[in-house]
Amino acid sequence: MEEQTLKVQKIKNGIVIDHIPCGMALKVLKILNINGDIGSTVSLVMHVKSRMGCKDVVKIEDRFLEEREIDKIALIAPTATVNVIENYKVVNKHKVELPDEIVGIVRCMNPRCITNQREPVVPEFKVVSKNPVIIKCKYCEREMGVEDIIENIL
C-alpha cells in the first residue's frame, strides 16, 4: 500500500485527503471549488488498492480547509480523513464526520421548495442515511442523494 501512495510525492505544506471512496476524488475537488486556476499544486490518485478495497487520495499544497469545507467533504465522502501537513509532517489528522443535520451548505434541489424563494431562511437537511448518503429537506421533505448534493452545493 505504501508503494501505491508514493506514486505521488510527499507535500511540504497543505492537506492530504485520504480514504476517499473510490472514484469520488474529482467530486471532492469540485465541491471544494478547486479548478484549473488554483495557484498551488494539486495531486490526485484514483483507485489506489487498500486494505478496505479501493480508495482515492487528494493532496493540495499550501491550502487548508475550513470546517464548512470539511463538512462538505463528509457529505460526499463520509469515510475520508483529512491530514494537515506542515514541513512534511502530519500535524493534525481527523476523520470527517457526517453530522445528523446539514445547515447552509447545500440548497434544496426542489425548485418549488420555499427555501429556493426569496425568504430569510437557510436550507436545512436531516441526514436520513449515511451509507449511501441521503439527506432530506427540513422544509419540503425532498430527499437528495450524493449526485443531487454535488449539483446543489453552496
Binding site: 434544496c108 426542489n110 418549488r112 421548495c113 420555499i114 427555501t115 424563494q117 425568504e119 431562511v121 429537506c137 427540513k138 422544509y139 419540503c140 421533505e141 425532498r142
Partner: peptide
C-alpha cells in the same frame, strides 16, 4: 401556499400555532 415547505417556514416565524392547509405538492 403554492410552494412546498411553506407551512414549515410559517410555523418557524409564527409564535402561535400554524395549521397547514396544503403546501404545493407537499402535505
Amino acid at each position: 401556499h403554492p410552494y412546498e415547505g411553506s407551512a414549515r417556514l410559517a410555523a418557524e416565524f409564527a409564535k402561535n400555532p400554524v395549521i397547514n392547509a396544503g403546501d404545493g405538492a407537499g402535505q
